[in-house]
Design a protein around this nucleic acid. Structure first.
Lengths: 154, 154
DNA sequence: AGTGAAAGACATTTAAA
DNA sequence: TTTAAATGTCTTTCACT
């Protein structure tokens, strides 16, 4: 993971669909070198995949919320059962398993506030694993790419 | 946004770097048709970009946390000043502006627990806009693609 | 809206430094 | 590791449906 690898990762995070040639041109290296670098990064698991970013409102998901869930008991089967159900709900964009006051935090996206209510009441409240939950509306969401390797020990 | 568009979005979310030809083959349409569809989806803002997914541990970010921040006062200049500072911090992967008990929730990723402590004490606690914050460690993070349009009214 | 054909651009392999 | 060259594949345009 040298400086060139870091630049490749940075550029592919910003635009994953640029051609290998364009990438190589930007970096000032030969296309074959660039291709080999990207392959190695992928083989080593540094690059995990490439994904299109979709606009949630355009997909009829105008309402977003963070929903924090507290389990009835902190046993593994309890939270695992809930997690495995929740990760298949189409409203859930990201699911975090966390420590602290709550056990699960979900980023959900739904068409409108009725759908959010229905999600909370029909999906969440009906689960036996769930003790309590609270939700907060998301007004804005800003994503950063992982730009630099912090304090690398290499 | 018909069924074909939805299938294109779904496939590009799963793998943004497959060739247009492969995409067309999967969908059973001509490459030129597929290209035009993707262009239209991009022009309409449904597809916002393509990004490489990076493995955080491989980038020396073994510790992740959700950090919830409460502002001193709920005025626009206060939270905007904080938000604009926070979105440039390299530890911050995603920043949510929310309603409810907290005003900002940040997903942060750092090398180790020392770095997390330093982030909380040196970056957060020193900000005048911040009244209180609490953090919870992330043990697992599961991301879902937006598979289907929910209850589309089209 | 969707298509096939054509031209040029690109990915990928290979041999060599 | 890196490269240039070569080959086969792909992107992209366009005339036509």
């Amino acid at each position: 993971m040298d400086e060139l690898d870091a630049r490749i990762v940075r550029l592919l995070q910003a635009n994953a669909r640029q051609s290998n040639r364009e990438l190589a041109r930007t970096l000032g290296i030969a296309p074959s070198t660039c291709l080999e670098r990207v392959r190695t990064l992928t083989r080593r698991g540094v690059i995990r995949g490439y994904h299109a970013e979709v606009d949630l409102p355009a997909m009829n998901r105008d309402v977003q919320a963070l929903v924090s869930v507290q389990m009835r008991r902190h046993s593994r089967p309890i939270y695992e059962a809930f997690r495995d159900a929740a990760k298949n709900w189409r409203e859930v964009i990201t699911l975090f398993v966390v420590s602290g006051e709550h056990d699960i935090v979900m980023h959900v996206a739904v068409p409108d506030s009725d759908s959010l209510h229905s999600f909370l009441v029909d999906r969440l409240a009906t689960r036996q694993e769930v003790a309590r939950f609270q939700s907060s509306l998301i007004f804005q969401r800003i994503h950063n790419n992982v730009l630099d390797v912090l304090d690398s020990g290499d």
